[in-house]
Simulated assay, not measured.
Amino acid sequence: MLIELSEDQQAIAENVRRTCSQFGDEYWSDCDTEKRFPTEFHRAMADNGWLGITMPEELGGAGLGVTEAAIMMHEVSASAGGYSAASALHLNLFGPHAVVVHGTDEQKERMLKPLIEGRDRACFGVTEPDAGLDTTSIKTFATKVDGGYSVTGRKIWTSSGQVANKILLLTRTTPKEECRKPTDGMTLFYTDLDKTQVEVRRIPKMGRNAVDSNATFIDDYFVPEEDRIGEEGQGFKYILHSLNPERILVGIEAVGLGRGALERAAKYAGERKVFGRLIGQNQGIQHPLAENWTYLESAYWMIMRAAYLYDAGKPCGAESNAGKFLGGRAAFDACTRAVMTHGGMGYSTEYQVERLFRESILLRIAPITEQLILSHIAERVLDLPKSY
Results as ranks from 00 to 15, higher is better:
residue 295 Y to M: 11
residue 309 L to E: 07
residue 287 H to P: 00
residue 307 A to Y: 01
residue 292 N to F: 00
residue 368 I to K: 11
residue 348 S to Q: 11
residue 364 R to W: 05
residue 370 E to I: 07
residue 248 I to H: 04
residue 277 R to F: 15
residue 363 L to T: 10
residue 318 A to I: 11
residue 347 Y to H: 13
residue 310 Y to P: 00
residue 377 I to Q: 07
residue 259 R to S: 05
residue 358 R to Q: 07
residue 368 I to Q: 13
residue 338 A to F: 06
residue 252 I to G: 09
residue 329 R to D: 03
residue 355 R to L: 10
residue 353 V to H: 07
residue 300 Y to H: 12
residue 379 E to G: 02
residue 359 E to I: 04
residue 315 P to H: 02
residue 293 W to L: 10
residue 255 V to K: 03
residue 307 A to E: 07
residue 301 W to V: 05
residue 367 P to S: 09
residue 371 Q to L: 06
residue 303 I to A: 13
residue 339 V to R: 11
residue 309 L to W: 01
residue 294 T to Q: 14
residue 312 A to W: 01
residue 357 F to L: 12
residue 283 Q to S: 13
residue 322 A to H: 04
residue 329 R to P: 00
residue 275 F to T: 04
residue 271 E to I: 02
residue 261 A to S: 13
residue 283 Q to H: 10
residue 328 G to K: 06
residue 377 I to N: 10
residue 245 P to F: 06
residue 376 H to V: 00
residue 339 V to W: 08
residue 287 H to I: 12
residue 347 Y to T: 09
residue 344 G to S: 12
residue 291 E to V: 14
residue 288 P to N: 10
residue 289 L to A: 11
residue 262 L to C: 09
residue 366 A to M: 11
residue 312 A to G: 03
residue 321 N to S: 15
residue 368 I to R: 14
residue 249 L to S: 04
residue 255 V to L: 03
residue 255 V to A: 02
residue 356 L to E: 12
residue 323 G to F: 03
residue 339 V to L: 15
residue 298 S to H: 03
